[in-house]
Design a protein around this nucleic acid. Sequence first.
DNA 1: TCAAAAGTGTTGCTTGTACACCCATGT
DNA 2: ACATGGGTGTACAAGCAACACTTTTGA
Lengths: 213, 213
Amino acid sequence: MPFTRIEIATFSLIEGGLHVLLAKRSEAPHAGEWALPGGVLRVDLDRSLEDAAMRVMRERLGVAVPFLRQLGAEGGPTRDPRAPWTLSIVYRALLPGSSVSPSAGKRITTLAWRNVTDAIEDPLAFDHARLIERALRQTREDVERLDLPFEWLPGTFTLGELQATCEALLGARLDKSSFRRRLADRGCVEPVPGAMRGGAFRPAQLYRCRPAV
Amino acid sequence: MPFTRIEIATFSLIEGGLHVLLAKRSEAPHAGEWALPGGVLRVDLDRSLEDAAMRVMRERLGVAVPFLRQLGAEGGPTRDPRAPWTLSIVYRALLPGSSVSPSAGKRITTLAWRNVTDAIEDPLAFDHARLIERALRQTREDVERLDLPFEWLPGTFTLGELQATCEALLGARLDKSSFRRRLADRGCVEPVPGAMRGGAFRPAQLYRCRPAV
DNA sequence: TCAAAAGTGTTGCTTGTACACCCATGT
DNA sequence: ACATGGGTGTACAAGCAACACTTTTGA
């Protein structure tokens, strides 16, 4: 049976830039290189793959995340020199950057948010560069079909904030009017009556995510 | 490490109806029930998950299929009573119905094409009903975005045949003109110069699949 | 009064559907 | 001639992008 692992691609928005959470490896193989945080599937602890992903998330990053999305599985004999055959189930998480307290654990020196474009340039451990690219593509497709990253926003938010968040993820500008029309048509968001956010300028209506039908 | 398997959801078009290839189990657990054909991942034989899926396909169905699509992984302790924890990687294949010679093997009495709607009604072994539904949804989404089931057609085909194939898969009628316009716009198909198919009525231009850019 | 962000309306393009119509062929 | 399926054209609606415009606030 294969050496079976869970790898987690966690994205966040930090100071307007899209970041991935990576761990710097302290031991061979690939010592000194960055890798996706992950862990071994524990058949004695995990009741499902999603369970396993949440446990790894908790152990490695100290955060409990209710919704993780499975992106797929990758397997082969040469992926990880520690085992003759390694299978990885890859999950994606979206987190507000503030919520992770990088704590060093075994086999890991540093846990850090790294800018996505930078991260992909560097040599990454194992085949994790490919995994990250796949996760990123998937996530952008989600946003394009208005499966929105509400995990990155507080319970209530302005449409401007939501738009800025999507733009950062896509790496492209969106048209304000079109964006709002699409939101209205699909009804993925609803105004909170009476609630306004007053900033430096004209106050904005606050919205909340409306659960899908 | 988990007991790791590959399950394969194979669809085909038989006499105008959408069918799944299922195996009737001869042994416990779930003796007498239908299940997706599958097999155990062999780390000594398989160079990748896709490799494994192709091997299982060859062994169980006697067919070599170059392109299988991974649909995802499912895992848990109660999925299969034979092992304390079972992980299944699910693949999808599309085959012309004629290409499978149902040959009985160990643990299997019958391999048969079953009408999809019927198959889902029956009690299916393990959690395979859910796996089939997921595979079907995925495949229909593919066709809707014109990722077409060319595996079900000969090298050259008429647009009428292609449309009928898609309609059977979707379980819905399509508009001829719209369908052709979409095909032309995306350029997923090209006419074979001079080649025509003469049937009982007006001969039709033959087309071939054009590889994606 | 001006900058900045909120919010709305107008136009036009693109995509897809519905439907009508001609074309070629065997019976 | 006509039924049958192949093949094409037009009209209409939906969805979306581009862009211009008005509104409300603090400085």
